[in-house]
Each structure stands twice: as structure tokens, then as C-alpha cells.
Design a binder for these strands. Sequence first.
DNA 1: CGAATAGTGTCTCTCAGACAATATCGG
DNA 2: CCGATATTGTCTGAGAGACACTATTCG
Lengths: 224, 224
Amino acid sequence: MPILCTVDVVLLTLNPQLQVALLPRDRAPLAGALALPGGFIHADEDADPLAAAARMLRAKTGLDCPYLEQLATFGGPGRDPRGWSISVAHVALVPADLLARGAAGLRWHPVDALPALAFDHAQIVAQAVARVRSKSQYSSLPVHLCGERFTLPQLQAVYEALLGEPLNKVSFRRRIDEMDLLEPIEGERTGGAHRPAQLWRLKDRRRGALTLTDRLLGPAVLAP
Amino acid sequence: MPILCTVDVVLLTLNPQLQVALLPRDRAPLAGALALPGGFIHADEDADPLAAAARMLRAKTGLDCPYLEQLATFGGPGRDPRGWSISVAHVALVPADLLARGAAGLRWHPVDALPALAFDHAQIVAQAVARVRSKSQYSSLPVHLCGERFTLPQLQAVYEALLGEPLNKVSFRRRIDEMDLLEPIEGERTGGAHRPAQLWRLKDRRRGALTLTDRLLGPAVLAP
DNA sequence: CGAATAGTGTCTCTCAGACAATATCGG
DNA sequence: CCGATATTGTCTGAGAGACACTATTCG
């Protein structure tokens, strides 16, 4: 009996709390149970586990992975009733404003109040959330939960939602500035009955990889 | 054709530089080539990937995993000539003074001057080293490269070897003290033609998990 | 006592966070 | 002008790192 090889994706958004995308399973085993988007690796079309996860994300959610990284691999004899199985779990982040399109059938649930999940998916979600919160302390990861353009107060609110505590405005701006991460969008500003905020976007050079700070933004959190 | 499921272990020690344990392959494919200790997951005896890695470590090196954690999973159609394969890679740390026993057939190589390796193992080693160096900045991970008992100057030298730069003695001791990680071994001290150093050991409570600092020990390094 | 290494006290300079002043919008 | 939010300047206290002093061993 060969080992079953799957990938799963913990797709997260912030709206306004951290939420995870779940899908009711449409077949046995555990038909109807809520589960992460995922499925078997296809040896004939996937170049690696990340590509398999991107394919899964596209197929099940219609989204073209904005941010996608490998999380960890879960395996064992009991997690799937069909036999010894492996799941290469991934984390994906999507800005809330992209959710309008393509979200057919997805059910979003706050990560702090999850229903029962199929297999060991609750554990996978927990580890994904811990990873995201941990990386939020020292990297630019949260920008991938903002849209293409955003203001600094918006970005700070995203960091605060992930870290679970208010941040000092001056320090936060110093950090972001030190990262040399953003560039202002000239002329564009947000409206409202008050002073509008400057809009920013990621510098081209920063699109691919995360940028790290050399000082933490918040208190230490358990790293996965 | 099912996907091949394997685990590999990047076993590292410090002696006095960071070195990785390699084994010449004893069978096809790539018989004779240097490779990481690893092998197929056995669905009938392994409880999960970590247990498979521990079994592999015991079988191929005789060591009972002192520190072992999952690193990442590598997979694709080309990395093993036998077909689409998955390797759940792990990192293990062992104090240099445990190497006397059980190291039959292991070849130790400095990680900064590796020979050609089989499969994609060079990439796996590189990622493992990056992970270890990154975690050395903000956690107690390096204590697992020391023996059961050690002095603070020894521990500082281990951190410095991993981080690649000298650390401030006063700050280093402040950090270690804040972590509430160690307890002195009363009465025992190291000898020499000079003042002997206090011996320390991990507090029981700290055996299992890593302890984190809330400030970094060195400058930021790329996190895996 | 001198050499060598271990351990500690202290000073300074940097920087994180608090506070507050200024800027810019709509009404 | 007023209310509201954005942005920036300044001050202060905590702490990291530099430096140097004390401690302890052997010869």
C-alpha cells in the first residue's frame, strides 16, 4: 500500500479578524465535513509541492496565489482513514478585497472560533496561524494581507490585528521606513472627513521575498 | 506510479566549525555518492515523519536523536531518477563529544566546503544551515550543540561560531540570564592554568522546547 | 607575583516609546 | 473655525555595548 501524498492550503485573510477558507468535502471519506482546500499531488503535472499547492488553490478557489509558502508536513497512519498519508501543508495570504471574485463555495471562519474540521486540519490551521503571527513580528509578511495600495495606518492596523496588541505609531513607522519596503504613490490619497493619508505600495524589488527587521515589533511569540 | 516518500536528516555538529554528517550510498541509484542519512518511510512502523527520521538516525548513525526537528519538504519529478519523490527533511543537532561512539561510516564535512552531494541534498543542507543560524539569533537552540554540562564561555563560543561574529560578553550573559534557561552545577568547575569557569546545565523545564529571547542576539539573517 | 581566563560593575550612547505639536481634510 | 485623522518633532528612560576592574586558578 503506497503512501498517500497530498497538499493542503491554509488560505488566510483579514476581514477584519484573521479568517481561514474552508470547503465542505464533496466525497468520501468524511463527505460534508469542513476541510482545507487540498488534494493529491499529481506526478504528471506538479513540478514540486509548492506548485501543487498553487494548482489546488487555483482549482478550488479561483485565486492565483498572491503569497504562498510551505508550512510543514503532517503524516501518519491515522490522519486519513484510507491509510498512511502525508500532507505538505502551505500557508497562503490574500487581501480581503480580492475575495469578491472567485470565492465560490468557500466558507470563511475566524481562526479563533473554528468548527470541527476533517482529518488533522485543525492542528494544521493552528500551526499556520502561529507561523503567520510569528513572522509578523519581524518581517514584512503582513503587507500581503493588504491590497496593492494601502496607507500606513491601514498597515499598522493589520500588524496590530495579527500581533493582538496596539503598536507605537512612531516606532512602527521607523521600522517600516528602515525596511526600505514601500514607496509613496504620488498624488493619490484616501478621502474622508479629515486629513487623508498617503498611499503606499511595495517597491518592485520587494515583491518576491519577505523583508526582515533587525528588531522585533512586539514581544516574543512561540515560533513554529 | 506512486510517489516515493522518504525522510532525510541533516545531522550537524560543531567541531570546531559547523559540520554535516554524510554517508556514501551503498546502492543504486547514485551508489557511492555522498548523501544525507535517509530512506523510505515505513508505513508499518513509523508513527509520523519525525519518528521516521529518528528511526533513520538510529539505524544509520547509532545516535538517539538529541535534538530533531522538521525542516521542510522537498519534492519533484527530477530529484530522484526513480520518479516523482518527496523528501521530508529534518535537522538534528548533536554535541561533538557524543560523536566518539556510534559514528561508524559517517563522514563529517564542514558545511562551508561541501563536496558534491547526491540528489538535491546540497540544497537541503543549505536550508538546514540557514535555519540553524537563524534560530541561533533568538533562541536557545545552540545549547543542543553543547554537551550536558558546559561553561558560559563555551556556550558563547558556540553562538559566535553559528552567528559568525563575536558577541558582547556582558550582553550575552544578560540574554542567557533573562531566558531563565540554565542552572549552575554546584561545586563543579573546569580546570586549567587560570580561573575555572562555572559549569551549567539546562533546567529540567527547558529540556523539551526551545526558549526564545525577545531581543535579537545579532544582526538579522534570512529566515527560512 | 604574573599570566591567563572568568565574572561583574559602571558609563555612555542609542533607540523605543510617550507626548505633543503641526498638517490637512470635510463640514 | 471645529472635529477628526495623518504626520512629524522632541524628550526621556531603558538597555546594549564598551571598558575596565575584580576574582581565581596554576606555576
